[in-house]
């Protein structure tokens, strides 16, 4: 049990660090963000790869009226998972995936992903996503799974974007909802 508690503490610390960084980044323009990003210490990906991950995740789940992937800490969590969970093979595949996204962005738009104008970035990632999901590419599919999972199960994703209750207390098998009802995260 001790190890779990330690893990929680570590996770809690990490989370507050993420929220701190995410919170400070939320209102800043893109260029200022590049500086802010240096505060996030990538441990697994190279800075260039991390920047692709960060941008791709935020394009998949952007900030709207609720936090996006970046503010929910998704890039940092995935970097963490690469260091703490992924096999060597998966890690290598994910590194190669980030390189591939950047290379393809360069080929398609004449600039690395982060250097593309925002609208072009979105357009590029949308096309890349459609291609890879259509081909059932296992590496990209797993990345997308991790982006969605760590976003919707993050505190921001589960409690702000969606709804979550640790202790529901009762089971209501049949409720009536309106058109704006949000889904349960779990």
């Amino acid at each position: 049990m001790q190890s779990t508690e330690l893990a929680i503490d570590r996770r809690a610390l990490l989370r507050s660090a993420i929220l701190l960084v995410g919170g400070s980044m939320a209102g800043l323009p893109g260029e200022a963000f590049a500086q802010g990003k240096k505060l996030t210490k990538a441990r697994f990906f190279t800075p260039a790869q991390y920047s692709v991950l960060d941008e791709t995740a935020e394009i998949i789940i952007p900030k709207t009226d609720t936090p996006g992937a970046r503010a929910a800490g998704v890039p940092s969590i995935i970097d963490d998972l690469m260091a703490n969970w992924a096999s060597a093979e998966r890690g290598a595949n994910f590194r190669a995936l980030m390189d591939d996204i950047d290379r393809r962005a360069l080929a398609a738009g004449g600039a690395s992903l982060r250097a593309l104008p925002p609208a072009r970035r979105l357009e590029f990632v949308r096309a890349y996503d459609a291609e890879k999901i259509g081909a059932k590419d296992p590496v990209y599919s797993r990345l997308k799974e991790l982006v969605l999972t760590t976003y919707y199960l993050s505190e921001a994703g589960a409690t702000q974007e969606l709804r979550y209750e640790l202790v529901p207390g009762k089971w209501e098998a049949w409720t009536t909802i309106g058109p704006d009802a949000r889904a349960w995260a779990v």
Partner: peptide, 20 residues
């Protein structure tokens, strides 16, 4: 819930709105 998005193509605000 959002898990239906795992095998789905889609990115961006519309994708996020649909999974909400």
């Amino acid at each position: 819930n959002w898990r239906r998005g795992l095998g789905q193509a889609g990115v961006g605000p519309e994708f996020k709105a649909s999974l909400r």
